[in-house]
Protein backbone atom coordinates (compact mmCIF):
# COMPACT_ATOMS: atom_id res chain seq x y z
CA UNK A 1 0.00 0.00 0.00
CA UNK A 2 1.46 3.33 -1.13
CA UNK A 3 1.01 6.19 1.34
CA UNK A 4 1.86 9.87 0.81
CA UNK A 5 2.10 12.00 3.93
CA UNK A 6 2.30 15.71 4.68
CA UNK A 7 3.11 17.41 7.98
CA UNK A 8 3.44 21.19 7.99
CA UNK A 9 2.96 21.75 11.72
CA UNK A 10 6.64 21.81 12.60
CA UNK A 11 9.54 24.15 11.90
CA UNK A 12 10.22 22.39 8.60
CA UNK A 13 7.65 20.86 6.30
CA UNK A 14 7.82 17.08 6.06
CA UNK A 15 6.62 14.91 3.21
CA UNK A 16 6.88 11.14 3.30
CA UNK A 17 6.25 8.39 0.81
CA UNK A 18 6.10 4.72 1.78
CA UNK A 19 5.29 1.48 -0.01
CA UNK A 20 4.09 -0.80 2.76
CA UNK A 21 6.73 -0.48 5.50
CA UNK A 22 9.40 0.49 2.97
CA UNK A 23 10.33 4.18 3.02
CA UNK A 24 10.62 5.62 -0.48
CA UNK A 25 11.11 9.26 0.44
CA UNK A 26 11.50 11.41 3.52
CA UNK A 27 11.52 15.01 2.44
CA UNK A 28 12.40 17.75 4.92
CA UNK A 29 11.90 21.34 3.76
CA UNK A 30 13.92 24.37 4.79
CA UNK A 31 13.04 26.06 8.03
CA UNK A 32 10.53 28.52 6.67
CA UNK A 33 7.46 30.32 7.79
CA UNK A 34 5.75 29.88 4.46
CA UNK A 35 4.57 26.30 4.13
CA UNK A 36 2.00 27.42 1.58
CA UNK A 37 4.32 28.49 -1.20
CA UNK A 38 6.31 25.31 -1.78
CA UNK A 39 4.04 22.56 -0.49
CA UNK A 40 2.53 21.39 -3.78
CA UNK A 41 5.73 21.46 -5.80
CA UNK A 42 7.56 19.64 -2.98
CA UNK A 43 4.90 16.94 -3.02
CA UNK A 44 5.25 16.78 -6.78
CA UNK A 45 9.04 16.44 -6.50
CA UNK A 46 8.74 13.62 -3.93
CA UNK A 47 6.33 11.74 -6.18
CA UNK A 48 8.20 12.28 -9.44
CA UNK A 49 11.58 11.38 -7.89
CA UNK A 50 9.99 8.04 -7.03
CA UNK A 51 8.65 7.75 -10.58
CA UNK A 52 5.11 8.09 -9.31
CA UNK A 53 2.11 10.36 -9.60
CA UNK A 54 -0.67 11.08 -7.14
CA UNK A 55 -2.78 8.48 -8.97
CA UNK A 56 -0.38 5.73 -7.81
CA UNK A 57 -0.93 6.60 -4.14
CA UNK A 58 -3.37 4.41 -2.19
CA UNK A 59 -3.86 6.65 0.84
CA UNK A 60 -2.95 10.00 2.36
CA UNK A 61 -1.56 10.73 5.81
CA UNK A 62 -1.62 14.22 7.19
CA UNK A 63 -0.09 15.68 10.34
CA UNK A 64 -2.86 17.39 12.29
CA UNK A 65 -0.57 19.16 14.77
CA UNK A 66 -0.17 20.47 17.32
CA UNK A 67 2.30 23.04 16.05
CA UNK A 68 2.22 26.22 14.00
CA UNK A 69 -1.45 27.15 13.64
CA UNK A 70 -1.15 28.62 10.16
CA UNK A 71 1.35 25.93 9.14
CA UNK A 72 -0.82 22.99 10.13
CA UNK A 73 -3.79 24.47 8.28
CA UNK A 74 -1.78 24.38 5.03
CA UNK A 75 -0.96 20.67 5.21
CA UNK A 76 -4.35 19.60 6.48
CA UNK A 77 -6.19 21.62 3.82
CA UNK A 78 -3.97 20.22 1.07
CA UNK A 79 -4.47 16.68 2.39
CA UNK A 80 -8.23 17.13 2.66
CA UNK A 81 -8.60 18.52 -0.86
CA UNK A 82 -6.36 15.84 -2.39
CA UNK A 83 -8.42 13.16 -0.65
CA UNK A 84 -11.67 14.86 -1.68
CA UNK A 85 -10.60 15.16 -5.31
CA UNK A 86 -9.20 11.64 -5.64
CA UNK A 87 -11.49 9.72 -3.31
CA UNK A 88 -8.43 8.17 -1.64
CA UNK A 89 -8.62 7.49 2.11
CA UNK A 90 -7.25 10.15 4.43
CA UNK A 91 -5.75 9.60 7.89
CA UNK A 92 -4.98 12.38 10.32
CA UNK A 93 -1.94 11.69 12.49
CA UNK A 94 -0.90 13.58 15.60
CA UNK A 95 2.39 15.35 14.93
CA UNK A 96 3.50 14.49 18.49
CA UNK A 97 2.70 10.79 17.96
CA UNK A 98 4.68 10.80 14.72
CA UNK A 99 7.66 12.35 16.51
CA UNK A 100 7.50 9.85 19.37
CA UNK A 101 7.35 6.91 16.96
CA UNK A 102 10.85 7.85 15.78
CA UNK A 103 12.46 7.19 19.17
CA UNK A 104 13.09 3.56 18.24
CA UNK A 105 13.22 0.98 20.97
CA UNK A 106 13.80 3.42 23.80
CA UNK A 107 13.43 1.68 27.15
CA UNK A 108 12.78 4.92 29.00
CA UNK A 109 9.92 7.39 29.00
CA UNK A 110 9.71 9.22 25.66
CA UNK A 111 8.69 12.87 25.42
CA UNK A 112 7.93 14.39 22.02
CA UNK A 113 8.06 18.16 21.88
CA UNK A 114 6.84 20.74 19.36
CA UNK A 115 7.52 24.45 19.71
CA UNK A 116 4.51 26.60 20.61
CA UNK A 117 6.29 29.95 20.56
CA UNK A 118 7.13 32.37 23.39
CA UNK A 119 8.90 29.72 25.49
CA UNK A 120 5.94 27.39 25.29
CA UNK A 121 5.78 23.85 23.96
CA UNK A 122 3.32 21.16 23.06
CA UNK A 123 4.30 17.77 24.41
CA UNK A 124 3.23 14.16 24.68
CA UNK A 125 4.58 11.29 26.82
CA UNK A 126 4.98 7.73 25.55
CA UNK A 127 6.31 4.31 26.50
CA UNK A 128 7.24 1.39 24.29
CA UNK A 129 4.99 -1.59 24.96
CA UNK A 130 5.32 -4.76 22.91
CA UNK A 131 7.04 -3.04 20.03
CA UNK A 132 4.54 -0.19 19.85
CA UNK A 133 4.81 3.37 21.09
CA UNK A 134 1.89 4.01 23.46
CA UNK A 135 0.79 7.47 24.56
CA UNK A 136 0.68 8.06 28.32
CA UNK A 137 -2.05 10.43 29.45
CA UNK A 138 -3.07 13.63 27.67
CA UNK A 139 -1.03 15.99 25.52
CA UNK A 140 0.09 19.13 27.30
CA UNK A 141 0.68 22.72 26.25
CA UNK A 142 2.52 25.34 28.26
CA UNK A 143 5.90 26.64 29.40
CA UNK A 144 8.80 24.24 29.04
CA UNK A 145 9.61 24.53 32.78
CA UNK A 146 6.14 23.36 33.74
CA UNK A 147 6.43 20.27 31.58
CA UNK A 148 9.88 19.37 32.85
CA UNK A 149 8.80 19.77 36.47
CA UNK A 150 6.55 16.71 36.06
CA UNK A 151 9.40 14.41 35.05
CA UNK A 152 11.05 12.22 37.75
CA UNK A 153 12.72 9.54 35.63
CA UNK A 154 15.05 9.16 32.66
CA UNK A 155 13.43 10.52 29.53
CA UNK A 156 14.29 10.69 25.85
CA UNK A 157 13.26 13.97 24.21
CA UNK A 158 12.30 13.89 20.54
CA UNK A 159 11.69 16.81 18.21
CA UNK A 160 13.68 19.85 17.18
CA UNK A 161 11.81 21.97 19.73
CA UNK A 162 13.56 19.85 22.38
CA UNK A 163 16.85 21.05 20.89
CA UNK A 164 15.63 24.64 20.97
CA UNK A 165 14.87 24.31 24.70
CA UNK A 166 17.75 21.92 25.42
CA UNK A 167 19.56 24.24 27.82
CA UNK A 168 16.48 24.83 29.97
CA UNK A 169 15.60 21.14 30.01
CA UNK A 170 19.15 20.01 30.85
CA UNK A 171 19.50 22.60 33.58
CA UNK A 172 16.37 21.27 35.30
CA UNK A 173 16.69 17.53 34.64
CA UNK A 174 20.45 17.00 34.49
CA UNK A 175 21.34 13.40 33.65
CA UNK A 176 17.72 12.27 33.44
CA UNK A 177 17.33 14.02 30.08
CA UNK A 178 18.58 12.48 26.85
CA UNK A 179 17.95 13.96 23.43
CA UNK A 180 17.46 12.33 20.09
CA UNK A 181 20.16 13.63 17.77
CA UNK A 182 19.22 16.71 15.81
CA UNK A 183 18.50 15.96 12.19
CA UNK A 184 17.55 12.35 12.88
CA UNK A 185 13.84 12.99 12.76
CA UNK A 186 11.94 11.41 9.89
CA UNK A 187 8.60 13.10 10.38
CA UNK A 188 7.38 12.45 6.84
CA UNK A 189 7.78 8.67 6.83
CA UNK A 190 6.75 8.44 10.50
CA UNK A 191 3.46 10.19 9.66
CA UNK A 192 2.97 7.90 6.66
CA UNK A 193 3.67 4.76 8.74
CA UNK A 194 1.18 5.76 11.44
CA UNK A 195 -1.39 6.55 8.74
CA UNK A 196 -0.77 3.11 7.23
CA UNK A 197 -1.30 1.47 10.64
CA UNK A 198 -4.60 3.29 11.01
CA UNK A 199 -5.70 2.28 7.51
CA UNK A 200 -4.76 -1.34 8.25
CA UNK A 201 -6.99 -1.18 11.32
CA UNK A 202 -9.79 -0.05 9.05
CA UNK A 203 -9.69 3.54 10.31
CA UNK A 204 -9.72 6.73 8.27
CA UNK A 205 -10.92 10.33 8.55
CA UNK A 206 -13.56 12.19 6.60
CA UNK A 207 -11.96 14.43 3.96
CA UNK A 208 -14.48 17.21 4.56
CA UNK A 209 -14.56 17.31 8.35
CA UNK A 210 -10.95 16.70 9.45
CA UNK A 211 -9.61 19.62 11.52
CA UNK A 212 -6.27 20.41 13.14
CA UNK A 213 -5.39 19.52 16.72
CA UNK A 214 -4.59 22.94 18.16
CA UNK A 215 -4.38 22.15 21.91
CA UNK A 216 -4.81 25.84 22.63
CA UNK A 217 -7.69 28.26 22.17
CA UNK A 218 -7.05 31.57 20.42
CA UNK A 219 -6.14 34.13 23.09
CA UNK A 220 -9.39 36.04 22.68
CA UNK A 221 -11.48 32.95 23.40
CA UNK A 222 -9.33 32.01 26.38
CA UNK A 223 -9.87 35.51 27.79
CA UNK A 224 -13.61 35.36 27.14
CA UNK A 225 -13.83 31.98 28.89
CA UNK A 226 -11.94 33.36 31.90
CA UNK A 227 -14.40 36.27 32.10
CA UNK A 228 -17.33 33.86 32.17
Amino acid sequence: MMILSIDTAGRSDAIGLIDGRRVLADFVGDVTHNSLQGIIMNIDAVLSNAGLTLADVDGLGVGIGPGSWTGVRVGITVGKMMAYATGKPLCGVSSLDALASQAGDASTLICSVVDAGRGNIYAGFYRRRGGVTVKQGQYTAGPVEGLVARIREPVLFVGDAAQVHRQTISALLGDLARFMKAGEERQGSATALLALSRLERGESDDALSLVPLYLKEPLVQALAARKR
Partner: peptide, 18 residues
Protein backbone atom coordinates in the same frame (compact mmCIF):
# COMPACT_ATOMS: atom_id res chain seq x y z
CA UNK B 1 -3.07 36.16 6.03
CA UNK B 2 -4.15 33.18 8.14
CA UNK B 3 -7.50 33.18 6.35
CA UNK B 4 -6.18 33.62 2.79
CA UNK B 5 -3.82 30.68 3.38
CA UNK B 6 -6.69 28.20 3.76
CA UNK B 7 -8.35 29.12 0.46
CA UNK B 8 -5.07 29.21 -1.44
CA UNK B 9 -3.97 25.83 -0.03
CA UNK B 10 -7.31 24.32 -1.07
CA UNK B 11 -7.17 25.86 -4.54
CA UNK B 12 -3.60 24.73 -5.16
CA UNK B 13 -4.32 21.18 -4.03
CA UNK B 14 -7.36 21.00 -6.32
CA UNK B 15 -5.54 22.55 -9.28
CA UNK B 16 -2.68 20.08 -8.87
CA UNK B 17 -4.86 17.03 -8.34
CA UNK B 18 -7.28 17.84 -11.18
Amino acid sequence: IGCLVVGVAAAKALAYTL
